[in-house]
Nucleic acid binder design. Structure first.
Length: 116
RNA sequence: CCAGACGGCCGGACGGCCGCCGUCACGCCCCCGUCAUGGGCGGGGCGGAGGAAAGUCCGGGCUCCACGGGAAUGCGGUGCCGGCUAACGGCCGGCGGGGGCGACCCCAGGGACAGUGCCACAGAGAACAGACCGCCCGCGCAAGGUUUCGACCCCGCGGGCAAGGGUGAAACGGUGCGGCAAGAGCGCACCGCGUCGGCGGCAACGUCGGCGGCACGGUAAACCCCACCGGGAGCAAGACCGAAUAGGGGCGGCCGGCGGCAUCCCGCGAGGGGUGUGACGCGAGGGCAUUCCCGCCCUGCCGCCCGGGUUGGUCGCGUCAGGCGCGCCGCGAGGCGCGUCGCAGAGGAAUGGCCGUCCCGCGCCGCGAGGUGCGGACAGAACCCGGCUUACAGGCCGUCUGGCGCC
RNA sequence: UGGGGCGUAGCCAAGCGGCAAGGCAGCGGAUUUUGAUUCCGCCAUGCGGAGGUUCGAAUCCUCCCGCCCCAA
């Protein structure tokens, strides 16, 4: 069983990924990705703004994103990249299987060469 | 049965798979001379959001900073009385005022003879006020009207009055009777107000009686006066460990025991004496956990300023004004005693994701049993505690009030 | 966590106890062949919401809602 992925924590890290990386919108989320030189396992961060809702709504949104990321990355691990998952208003009501598929599609567009 | 008032409580239940945070011990592995300790992996047991965790409106604990004592002033807050409490602007009980048929509910509710300000418009007059219409008396009477030919009405002049009309949020007490030319607290009764006294009450206040003869309009959530309370900041408080800059720079002050060095004086001279000197030695001081010895390493000391570096970890950080039960005291808030329980501790921040069954509500289908779809409030701990305020689907319990029906 | 400020018409805003200024925009009219300009007129049952004080509240008080700013 794989360990929990490393988390992005610093504001500067989020700004770098959001500013320099690719931005892939999906119905249930927005994926921001920035490649790193090393081949270490992907680091991951979550952004859910106050615009989405109150604290309860933001918590639910982030937890669904985290659960989806855990399952998707377990089946197909990503390496050498920093990922930021941005919650949208639709994230909370999105069917969970569809949400996972959103993330898979977004990851496929980030690293097309490394996927068969 | 219907409508309502008050108080208290709950705020989905059970299960499956996969995860997260904390904690407890266990197994295996690594490090190691051994112990201690540390690290990694694994599965397991236990615990894991709220009544408001929210808003941050008050009060406290805790921590740091400041501070001789007292008074006054300023600023801010509070404001019927008594009690509860660690404290409060909270709560309980009472008083007064207002609302409701009632249960019951609401009220920042000290002082307006300490002073100052304001009271628009309307209205005759708005604060030691005032007379427009009006009422009454006297005198006059050209014109007009009536006439029983006296006069009267109208009108004019002089005077009295403030009852009625009208304005206003408010008009210098209200109602009734007497009184009067008409009127008026002018007199009387009741109500209100003021004041004095008795009684009840800790008090706010209530009540009774006498007197006054209506004199003292409102506004203090206007300034203000009075009484009482109040150091400042906040867990990013604060403490420690590590890492890094590094032998950083400037200014000022201070220490000289011995040697060295510099310099001055004395002496022909060996030498003696004085002064100074800190990227010189010894001494001295500090560090290597502690003591002694040896060894090694570091270093002038203090203060202020400038510049630079550091955002990793540990503690604070979960046992308290604690929850529950029982008994006693108290109308109550609450207090006392005994027993019992251990109840979240994250740190870009855990407490979850998905699924099933049941429960509740609504819609649709069906005569029905039932089937089916959608929905399940407000809301997420961030140092802790006591309150307040605000948000909230649905439901439960108890007491009480009004109405209808039946016995 | 602590502190400060602002919500007035579609927009910018004055007023801060008795009447809600003004400008832009909009609408109607006049002038003009038409347009621009200019001129005249109209446009807030109520000042973010709810209570309260007062005879009277945008204004004073209390509690909420929303937005902005500052310090750490």
């Amino acid at each position: 069983m794989n360990a929990a992925p490393a988390r992005l924590k610093r504001r500067a890290e989020f700004l770098r990924v959001g500013g320099k990386g690719r931005k892939i919108p999906q119905p249930g989320l927005v994926l921001q990705a920035l490649a790193r030189a090393d081949g270490a396992p992907a680091r991951i961060g979550f952004t859910v703004t106050k615009k989405i809702g109150n604290a309860v709504v933001r918590n639910r949104t982030r937890r669904r994103l985290r659960a989806a990321a855990r399952l998707v990355l377990a089946e197909t691990p990503a390496v050498g990249v920093d990922l930021v998952l941005v919650g949208r208003a639709a994230t909370r009501g999105r069917n969970f299987a569809a949400l996972m598929q959103d993330l898979r599609d977004a990851l496929a567009r980030v690293q097309p060469a490394e996927r068969p």
